[in-house]
Design a binder for these strands. Structure first.
Lengths: 265, 265
DNA sequence: CGCTAGGTTGAATACGCTCAAAGATCGTGG
DNA sequence: CCACGATCTTTGAGCGTATTCAACCTAGCG
């Protein structure tokens, strides 16, 4: 198969799977690797919106990849306060560390209708054994998860309500852009209610409402029937002191070089 | 070598290396695995307190394991506000995801004098290839890192200053207890200044001071020359709604079972 | 013994919360 | 297809937690 044919093949598969899209952003995949990833995608499951997918404390016997829709991981305190820890978008694995954790720490719920691929964690290990480069790319994905968590910590710790809001809207925008879920107008589907967003950014939903209004009044965003539009990305970046993380752009590390240096090949 | 001898050997090595101590909390290690881990420990480096170890944006060519001392990862905004993302204690790897990340996202600094073992990320890959069980245990460690980050997010998002402070003091206590760095009196070495702790919990150092005083006035803690004593752990747990995470107790997953199910053995 | 980093305290202010009530939108069943 | 209920959004007003500014105190180290 020529390089051209391979790239075409990659592209076709990209259209089917946001996971493969994500992986191939990190590194050019060969056909064996794509085949291995495709095996996971053999069948998909569709879940309703607003359903709890993983209960806190459950033993998890299976992993999930999101094909379509949004989910989120959260924690609830006894006083009724809820904190959203992170969002899962198409191509994300819920939860990637599940691989080796016997129990889930926090519950995960679907935010929209969710199309997922379910597979046994064992399959990942077998796949990594057969295609070691995929283990490395998976490791990079885990590193990105860690970066996203760190961003959330910084957001909550040192930014004002206004800055926090601008920051997360940019964060979601760039994550969605990477998998082709934004249009040219800096618009994206935004299914988060103001109450949930408030629980994400550690503020009351009343103040969330006022903060979003302030962003609208300043002509920075517009929201129309769950469509979020960033009207002035440069200004938003300045307000939020947003740094488009390398982890959202794609990496240039030559994984083959790392592989060569070990006896994994 | 009899089982008894092996356990003795484990214990001897535990005394030398907090990393091996951490790993063997997750799973009983055999001698080959201990040897592989020991190779990393061949020589140690000592760093001064309050030195930047990793600059944001650096390419990192090496990993570090902390043998002795504390370090922390933080982010600084242009307005001078600083957010501590997490602390690294003996047995922790700085930063574990470094393995595959070309650049560091956030800077890491030593808080105390730091004794570390430095090694090339490649060595980890070679080690995992030779001793696949260690890769799985490493994966569990990464999962624990993720849990700790999630805890920090929940702390900052939904807890009051008073609760946050109680919570992190418990968190550090249990992490240190796991590696034998607390004494029977619920006392531990606490090198964090009030200003740094304030930057960890997203509050001003003035309010940090008042919050610590309130905990002292309520006979919950006492601080004397960098020794932190938790005077009433049960009450602190109630205030903070602290949940001693499974990740801090050790896991019971049978890794051999997972290995058996793949062709990694 | 003096300097510096860290800790303490007071007072004024502000950001964001709570409580409360009304308005808009969406989905569903009649 | 419209009406109804439920969920989500909006707005006002009073309050409280935590911030800022400013000054002073203390301990450790050269």
């Amino acid at each position: 198969m020529s390089l051209e044919e391979q790239e075409l093949s990659n592209e076709l598969l990209d259209n089917r799977s946001p996971l493969i899209k994500r992986f191939s952003h990190l590194h050019q995949l060969n056909n064996n690797e794509i085949d291995a990833l495709n095996k996971i995608h053999e069948q998909t499951t569709v879940l309703d919106a607003n359903e709890i997918i993983l209960h806190k404390g459950d033993f998890h016997k299976e992993c999930m990849i999101i094909i379509r829709g949004w989910a989120y991981r959260s924690s609830m305190l006894s006083n009724g306060k809820r904190q959203v820890i992170n969002y899962y978008l198409p191509g994300d694995i819920i939860s990637p560390f599940a691989l080796l954790q016997p129990k889930t720490d926090y519950s995960v719920a679907s935010l929209t209708i969710l199309e997922t691929c379910v597979f046994k964690p064992d399959y990942l290990l077998q796949m990594f054994s057969a295609e070691p480069r995929l283990a490395l790319i998976y490791g990079q994905m885990l590193g990105r998860e860690d970066s996203l968590s760190a961003e959330q910590i910084v957001r909550l710790g040192v930014r004002s309500a206004y800055e926090r809001t601008a920051h997360i809207l940019l964060d979601l925008y760039y994550r969605l852009k990477l998998i082709g879920l934004t249009d040219g107008e800096e618009t994206y589907f935004f299914p988060i209610t103001q109450e949930l967003l408030a629980d994400t950014l550690g503020m009351s939903f009343v103040h969330m409402n006022r903060t979003l209004h302030k962003l609208r009044d300043n002509n920075l965003i517009s929201i129309d029937s769950k469509q979020m539009t960033l009207l002035n990305i440069d200004e938003l970046i300045k307000i939020a002191e947003y740094q488009p993380s390398y982890s959202q752009i794609g990496l240039n590390t030559d994984i083959n070089e790392i592989i060569e240096s070990t006896n994994l090949h």
